[in-house]
């Protein structure tokens, strides 16, 4: 009988529950309640490769863990970049972590934006509020290999001009000629010369070939729903649209069920889903 290979001893297997210590190397205030943290390994560690759209579980020691999307450049895996908005105790503790603070990292987890499927096509990114950070790695990747993609259109909506994250970088993107980056806010005073209104209002003006376009959406679920409607009215189909969903993730490895959405575990099967695969669950109340 052929010898069956045995699993490595338990002590050799990395525990899925054990966070790896990272040190906050840089903390940048994005808005009044949102910061971007650059994390570097606290111990000698290999690089931390990830795919655009994936997330990590960040551990504020003594407080708890939260799922936070990776917002950095996949081509620079030596450090981890996360953008965190204060929404509760854990995110508040993470957002308050200054340089030198040790945080725990488990990950990366989840599915990614299907960039390979987008090659040769026009690409539309629609972000609402803190939906831009999970999309930024995809934009970095596309811009680094710009020739592989058709037109790139980004629509980014926020509550007010003061709530726009990555403000300086957004201005740089808006100045580029190889993508069109539109920003819009829900309300503004006269000092704002940009657009005011919902991201959906910008969809009819997209300069893309609807039959040969892929859309990546991230933001509040109601925004996703109405944006998909607008994209369909533009001539796209729901299976051309991918969304990043947010649920209450705890284990992040598809065991605990906290993030279950119908038959899907958002942490394991998502957070990036093809919209046509999950749309029926998004209308189920209490799900």
């Amino acid at each position: 009988m052929a010898a069956r290979s045995l699993p490595p001893a338990a002590e050799e297997m990395p525990s899925p529950w054990a966070p790896v210590p990272f040190r906050v190397a840089q903390r940048t205030a994005e808005t009044s309640d949102t910061v971007t943290l650059v994390l570097t390994p606290a111990r000698d560690a290999p690089e931390f490769p990830f795919a655009p759209g994936q997330f990590n579980m960040l551990y504020a020691f003594g407080v708890g863990e939260a799922a936070i999307s990776i917002s950095g450049d996949p081509a620079a895996p030596g450090s981890l970049v996360h953008t965190v908005r204060t929404a509760g105790k854990v995110s508040g503790a993470l957002a308050a972590a200054g340089p030198g603070t040790i945080v725990g990292v488990r990950g990366p987890y989840g599915s990614a934006w299907p960039l390979a499927a987008a090659e040769g096509k026009d690409v539309v990114l629609v972000a609402g509020g803190l939906g831009l950070p999970p999309l930024r790695p995809a934009l970095y990747t596309m811009l680094a290999d710009r020739g592989k993609f058709g037109r790139i259109e980004v629509i980014y909506g926020a509550r007010t001009p003061k709530d726009l994250v990555f403000y300086r970088q957004v201005q740089e993107w808006r100045a580029r000629t190889d993508l069109r980056f539109q920003t819009t806010v829900d309300a503004a005073d006269r000092s704002w010369y940009g657009d005011v209104g919902l991201v959906t209002a910008r969809v009819p003006d997209l300069r893309v070939d609807p039959a040969n376009t892929v859309a990546f959406l991230c933001g509040p679920e109601v925004m996703l729903k109405f944006t998909v409607q607008a994209l369909v009215a533009k001539g796209m189909t729901e299976d051309q649209v991918y969304v990043s969903l947010e649920r209450n993730m705890k284990c992040a490895i598809g065991l605990c069920g906290h993030c279950q959405l119908g038959p899907e575990f958002v942490c394991r099967d998502g957070p990036v889903f093809r919209y046509s695969d999950v749309r029926r669950y998004l209308t189920v109340r209490e799900l």
Partner: peptide, 14 residues
């Protein structure tokens, strides 16, 4: 009207 309703919901708020 739809857009106004959504803006009233303050989707991007806290």
């Amino acid at each position: 009207l739809d857009h106004t309703r959504l803006q009233l919901m303050d989707l991007h708020g806290r």
